[in-house]
Amino acid sequence: MFAIEVDNLTKIYGKGETTVTALQDATFKVRPGELVAILGPSGSGKTTLLTCIGLINEPTLGTVVIDGTTVADGGWHGGIDLKRMRREKLGFIFQAHNLIPFLTAQENVMIALEINGLTRNEAKKRSVELLSALNLGHRINNYPSALSGGESQRVAIARALANRPKVILADEPTAALDTENGKNVMDLLKKLAVENHSAIMVVTHDHRMVDGFDRIFTVSDGRITDEKIS
């Protein structure tokens, strides 16, 4: 079974004469454990692709299947619980890490676990495991404001991994980091893709960061124009 199946995915913004086609006929499949990079200039449609797969943006046409569940079929699939899908099957990593400022590093991971139904003790235990695995065991009680950019991004990765999602979507995860920290984060994602058997799709405009990715899509004017396989 594929982690992601996308067929003729199209996203058109606006109505009537003022429509903008942000994404057109995207078709691909991603296996569990595969690491996929999406490259392209600003406004090319790479984030639109990510948000359509991430169940944030409703596709206009085409189908999206996540871990065997059809989530979009010319619009959202009838009866699909988007929040539940996002909670259980997807993990998100953002450019600005988006940690909740009033929660400690540990609580930022715990919140993802608790809203997925884990008890407080279970969430506590798993969050410590995850943060320790990402070398943040000594920072669990620190607020995001006290963490460096690299540390914050690692907490965000721990949160994304918390519920063992089938798919991890990362939007410019290294954009706010220096080269060394950016490289470390990318290496970490590669390692996690293998260990957790999760499909990881990373949007980036930095070609230097995609070494070692299984596949690299290039998006231009809303179309996937190139696909390289390592």
Binding site: G54, I56, K83, R84, M85, R86, R87, E88, L90, F92, F94, N98, I100, P101, F102, I111, A112, I115, N116, R159
Partner: peptide
């Protein structure tokens, strides 16, 4: 924060 909570599937 609210958008992030919604994104990670918060009810």
């Amino acid at each position: 924060v609210i958008a992030t909570l919604k994104l990670i599937g918060s009810q």
